[in-house]
Design a protein around this nucleic acid. Sequence first.
RNA 1: GGUUCCGUAGCUCAGCUGGAUAGAGCAACAGCCUUCUAAGCUGUAGGUCGAAGGUUCGAAUCCUUCCGGAAUCACCA
Length: 600
Amino acid sequence: MHTNLLDMQRLEELLSSAVRRALNELYETGTADLPVQIQKTKKEFEGDVTVVTFPLVRFTGISPEETAKVLGTYLKKNLAEISGFNVVKGFLNLNISGTYWLNVIKEACKDHYYGIQIPDNNSPTVMVEYSSPNTNKPLHLGHVRNNLIGFSISRILEASGKKVLKVNLVNDRGIHICKSMVAWKKFGNGETPDKSGKKGDKLVGDYYVLFDREFKKQVEQLVESGEDRKVAENNAPLMVEAREMLRKWESDDPEVTDLWRTMNGWVYEGFDTTYNRLGVSFDRTYYESETYKLGRELVLEGLKKNLLEKEEDGSVWADLTDKKLDRKILLRSDGTSVYMTQDIGTAQQRFSEYNLENHIYVVGNEQNYHFQVLRLILEKLGFEWAGRLHHLSYGMVELPGGKMKSREGTVVDADDLIDEMIFTAKTMSDELGKLSEYSDSEKENIYRQIGLGALKYFILKVDPKKNMLFDPQESIDFNGNTGPFIQYTFARIQSVLRNAGNVETEIPDVTPNSKETTLARLIYQFPEIVVAAGEEQDPSVIANYMYELAKEFNQFYHDHSILSAENDASRLFRIHLAGKVGEIVEKGMWLLGIEVPERM
RNA sequence: GGUUCCGUAGCUCAGCUGGAUAGAGCAACAGCCUUCUAAGCUGUAGGUCGAAGGUUCGAAUCCUUCCGGAAUCACCA
């Protein structure tokens, strides 16, 4: 059986209802609207849980300190779980009995799925769209953040008891793809990934860059010969060719479609490699070439119902001025769709195909406006599920010099980044020399786990909605609040467990000491942390918790010997406690998409 | 200019649904390995929480204004 949430919230609820009862008994306050505030006791004070009495004084009519004392006395007398209390100003700090914490550990140890709710057939379904690359460039650091957040939040939602569909919407069509195609045709001499040994996405990306360079040359030439810059950019021969290519693609020209398919194929192979290395995956991949016509019909229907407006030139608009926003075009004057139109269509397609409780788009914050408008238009069109769309907006990854700029060559390539992280892990591991008895392939695997652990944790520990800074020079730490630190904690625990061998499964009755109690408190919190991370759609909640847990464990490990504990009962208890912490570390890291090594 | 988001230690970040003396890590300095993995542990130093008002018994947290930064406001995606 899974430990259910009602059990886990028992402590808070138990206390708050006891406080209500106490006040009602002593001061006849009634129990309905009492503002009972219960929180974790701050580290620097003694106690486990704190009742804040300031809001209660208007019911008791006595000072906060007196109120705290009265309540403390009552609670200690009437609740077995309370073993003592102290009062600082208006704060009533309660000590929870050792028995209670012992039971928390016992219960947690019994439950293999502790903190994790397994979805079943009746669980609601959530769709998470993430990654969503263009096929004209390789993945870079920005995509890495997107992929890690998308993948992690999917796992967190699964652990919150949702069925999760991870989907990718690949932008495989449009003028940018045609640019790569034009450049390859003109300058490529039939280069392929096989012939040049280049990764497919890199190869195509290089031609995209080449297009841009040659295009600029042409523009400069035209400007020098007296052409207006705007006109030159429009009329440069390469641009004309790219547009022509797009026209041909849209009319299913066989030669163009063929080249398009080939080059996209190269890119997908490259993407798959990167996705595999990052450890992310999808349940379903959508392609814009197959969805870009969706939405048009819905817009026309909306027009028929007078929900949308048609201009004299034939373009169709949604008027959102009543929502304090602008008007948004949905069909161009030539009748073709824009990006928004397609998103209307794909959303409708998905909601008609699946019964979705929620649809999460993991997309950068530069598209905040787009998703705000998307939802409003869907509401306007009368789709009852419009409110179930959610934009998980994340901030930019900036470099010390500001934004990544391809023109200045400051784009941090995803593959290079992964390579560097693994290399650093290898250098560090070899220096420490703890893996000498391992085979080369085992070592490689551990370097990979650590390097990726460092990268993923570094990115996921930051609140998604905030912009973050990545300094390639200073690279990423392996000490302190880092992925390897947490992985190391796990490896240490596994080492202890190996040395312990087989032990009795029954946990003996001991009174936890202060460090053990702190760990019990953290273990107690884990299930609510998972739920909170899911509700807030924020993996950093998990990351911060993991760090706290690992840090606490390391202190415990430093202060107390597990295998040479004072007596057999304590030894056995600590082995189980350490084992459970290890399991939670493993599970928490799994939620972040980070592997944990047995040794490091 | 409109809208949205962000300003916390030298640097990177927590804390933000109001509560105690604002916390970590890195960098600096000083300690701890004959003992379960020192990728660890302990200590020192470092702050007008961008500024000013307001609400409150209580504000880094909520409201207003201002300053500074970012994103966005295409018949692009």
